[in-house]
Design a protein around this nucleic acid. Structure first.
Lengths: 101, 101
DNA sequence: ACCGTTGTTCGACTTTCGTCGAACAAGCTC
DNA sequence: GAGCTTGTTCGACGAAAGTCGAACAACGGT
């Protein structure tokens, strides 16, 4: 399986912002921001696995996450260092924002 | 004319991000970031005035801009101080991003 | 009062997006 | 290999967003 993980500098800012402008994806990012790798299936999102797969794809193709395949599972992690370097303050601003349901 | 200009803290982060996640609106924000007030009609956007009006409304209702009415013109300005206070780094990160396209 | 300017609002249309069930692919275990 | 688990892909659907022309409203000037 070929995973499309673009260079962050090749992704339009608007695509990065659009990826973050969704409640479900923001919840995923918040979870990932705790650090480390997370298995796709362990997110508590209240959506179908098809939709979860879709959102994770959006995040990955926006350059926000990286995915490692191991067996039947996929381990996702936030590309925090790269994000902080290219968009300093962005992630922090989004993550420290109040979690209005 | 009643202008809807919400308190920034009452706007969901996702709405702020969504407002910024559009090329036309980002161009408007970049122009406004130069400082001062700008008359609606002076933006060079290559779109119809109906569409321009729509985008300015989105920005205003996302808490990003403030509009002052004077005669038949409207003067728009960026709510930079409030934005920097509530989302430190966000605007800078977006504005310093390469202007691809 | 008339006309031009400025900007909003109203359909209408097209495209994009979020969502799901079903089918599929790949791996693990027995 | 059979069966289970994990996750993606494929339509399909409804909702939302971007776009426009046309109509409208408000103001200013002559």
């Amino acid at each position: 399986m070929e995973l499309h993980e673009p260079e962050l500098r090749d992704v339009p800012v608007t695509a990065v912002l659009a990826a973050l402008a969704d409640d479900v994806r923001l919840q995923i990012v918040r979870t990932l921001a705790a650090g480390g790798e997370h298995v796709c299936g362990t997110f508590e999102l209240g959506i179908s696995k098809a939709t979860r797969s879709h959102h994770l794809k959006v995040l990955r193709e926006a350059g926000l996450t990286r995915t490692r395949i191991a067996g039947t599972s996929r381990y996702v992690r936030l590309r925090r260092d790269e994000l902080d370097r290219l968009y300093p303050g962005l992630l922090d601003a989004v993550l420290t924002a109040p979690t209005r349901s």
